[in-house]
Design a protein around this nucleic acid. Structure first.
Lengths: 243, 243
DNA sequence: AAGTGGTCTAGACCACGTT
DNA sequence: ACGTGGTCTAGACCACTTT
């Protein structure tokens, strides 16, 4: 564990303990460097981490200001995978495949997955539950390569992500997300147990591997209130959480 | 403009021009330092900026990989202010105050704005339009100090943010956002011209000054499709845009 | 005027990937 | 074995805030 991270953690603890209350100033870089017995650059890197997490604000010429108690920031996988999000919130995810099939790629598939016209994609419609209650309908389109693996995934698999990692060594490293609202269609309403036209939060998602190649894209529709997307935003940081 | 930012911009341009195609590797830090005639640390800072913006991926031991074409990432103010978002998207924002009044602070106000029980807050209900079309209902609660200024703001003011900056020198520096979905209430439906129960995207927002003091909080309700929140997320970066 | 963070330099050693 | 990025050091000068 790098020294600068230890220092950042130590400062987080001090802030949580009330040594540096919200709104007050931290000691200067030079003072902290003495206190921790490291070079100024190392303290600087620690402070950079805290600024990036939205814990501190930084203005040239003035000491750094304490913004607030450190909040738990979600990991990349918690933000991408329904099951990992649920587990990390102390809920029990489950799911079932409603429908799965191979189709010729649509123009939208070709754009999102960067595949050739005429290639096949594997479409899966899943109903997702939290503690047995239906909360989300997921329509995912996989590239042919990934579909080969996914089609052998058990229908009641709670986490396709974990299954893919274990079975095929597939690791996601980046994702693009879009959030909007829509009205429940007939199929959505039937699966989720809402009336047709009920408000849903839509989550469109494209996931990529380490080299930036798209592996899947999906449209998820959540019952209103089941998912809240949270962003802490300043000119120097964007912290994401969801609950 | 710092040198490291110039270097980052230059690399962005090179990537856009196809000199470093998506999926390929960038030259090493040392090579780039020679090319730009700066110290390695300066190149490092430039590359850090690009990694933070999701343009590059970085793994120890391997050269940095080009993830994708540089995307325009929204500024903090574009993300916080309806008018600035609209303008930066080439749209014309307008707005009108439907109702404004002083009220005793509710428990929710006291929590969000960190004010004492018994203090007053200034509530404003606005209808917001894009190119004359109603798209959003905004219910904002201002602290007493800020309310003193806002109550003199013209009713048809397009950007309260700009007005506050010019008139009272108020600058926002951080904001917390929450997104979810809800059904249009009677008042929402009347103002937005939708049916009651129509799906809306809700945006709850609390804005802070440079010292972390809350200045206002708001609940904005958008017609479905009028606003899309976009997040590009990996373990090393969270890029936000909205359209 | 003094202090602070922002930028930049010029080195060093190490863990890890690539070959 | 070698090259690469990650970490760390020890300085320097400047723009800006605070007093």
């Amino acid at each position: 564990m790098p020294r600068y991270h230890e220092i950042a953690e130590s400062l987080r603890t001090s802030i949580a303990a009330g040594r540096y209350p919200r709104g007050t100033s931290l000691p200067s870089e030079r003072e902290l460097a003495q206190e921790f017995d490291v070079a100024a650059g190392t303290v600087r890197q620690a402070l950079g981490e805290l600024v990036g997490d939205g814990v501190l604000a930084s203005r040239r010429g003035a000491r750094r200001t304490v913004i607030g108690l450190p909040k738990r920031t979600g990991t990349f996988e918690e933000f991408r995978s329904f099951a990992q999000w649920a587990w990390s919130n102390g809920r029990t995810p489950s799911g079932e495949v409603v429908c799965a099939r191979w189709c010729p790629s649509s123009p939208l598939d070709q754009e999102k997955l960067r595949v050739e016209p005429g290639s096949q994609v594997y479409q899966v419609l899943r109903l997702r539950r939290l503690d047995e209650r239906p909360v989300m309908v997921e329509r995912t389109h996989y590239t042919a390569t990934l579909g080969q693996h996914v089609q052998h995934c058990p229908d009641d698999c709670a986490s396709v992500t974990s299954w893919l990692a274990g079975e095929a060594g597939v690791l996601f490293s980046r994702a693009e997300h879009q959030f909007s609202a829509c009205a429940a269609g007939t199929e959505d309403a039937r699966l989720l147990g809402t009336r047709r036209g009920a408000p849903l939060l839509t989550h469109r998602r494209t996931s990529f591997d380490g080299k930036g190649t798209p592996l899947e894209w999906s449209e998820d529709r959540y019952i209103a209130g089941a998912l809240t997307v949270m962003v802490d935003n300043s000119s120097s940081s964007n912290v994401l959480r969801w609950g």
